[in-house]
């Protein structure tokens, strides 16, 4: 099957061919799913080159672990879990290399989020989806990695508290606290952007 055109082959067959060692089949899988895997890496790291490197590393790991793919979830979901774990390792390494941010200190000491005024008017009401995406992306970039991670896993990956705690390696209480702060901060940032525009 080497050199075969796989453009019309479904994912399941591509996975089977890749398991037999067909790199061309795996290349087709990469081509089909590279964007969402990269997007997840970017949403967690916020750095383009890091996201490219981590998503490529995830694809290499995916190739090596193809035998472990059971097909219970979709291939994209399986690959997304791999890239999330790589991003978490990457963020942990980064965290060890830098001092804790003021936001993290606030979280530990009781939380500035409790003092933030409630945003009573929906700051995203009436926005076009494309415009909203830009604002969400910008606001996400202003959260700390810890808060952004929990928010991304909950809202984009639709994980529950327990799954996030297991993935991130923290308590459910920490997940709830980080998620609460992240949402409140997002609301405040979106409201500020609305005022500016």
């Amino acid at each position: 099957m080497s050199g075969q055109n796989y453009s019309t082959t479904d994912d399941e067959m591509l996975v089977q061919a890749a398991r037999r060692g067909e790199l061309a089949a795996f290349e087709e899988l990469v081509f089909r799913h590279r964007d969402p895997i990269y997007a997840r890496a970017f949403s967690m790291t916020r750095k383009e080159q890091d996201a490219v490197d981590l998503s490529q590393e995830a694809w290499v790991k995916g190739w090596q672990r193809l035998e472990q793919f059971q097909g219970d979830a979709s291939f994209t979901t399986w690959m997304t879990r791999i890239v999330i774990n790589l991003c978490l390792d990457h963020l942990r390494k980064q965290k060890r290399q830098r001092a804790e941010s003021i936001e993290e200190m606030d979280e530990e000491s009781g939380g500035v989020e409790r003092q933030m005024p409630v945003v009573t008017v929906n700051p995203t009401a009436g926005l076009e989806r494309a415009e909203l995406r830009v604002k969400i992306d910008e606001a996400l970039g202003r959260l700390s990695a810890e808060h952004r991670t929990v928010l991304v896993l909950h809202e984009f990956e639709e994980m529950d508290y327990k799954a996030i705690a297991k993935t991130v390696g923290c308590s459910m209480g920490t997940v709830m606290s980080r998620l609460f702060y992240a949402r409140r901060k997002m609301a405040a940032l979106l409201a500020d952007m609305r005022k500016i525009t």
């Binding site: 964007d35 997007a39 929906n122 700051p123 995203t124 989806r129 995406r133």
Partner: peptide, 20 residues
């Protein structure tokens, strides 16, 4: 209400990014 609005906005508008 604030928490709900933020959640809805995020779910509806996940940024779509492509490999550069």
């Amino acid at each position: 209400s604030e928490l709900k609005n933020t959640r809805q906005a995020m779910v509806q508008a996940e940024p779509h990014l492509g490999v550069p």
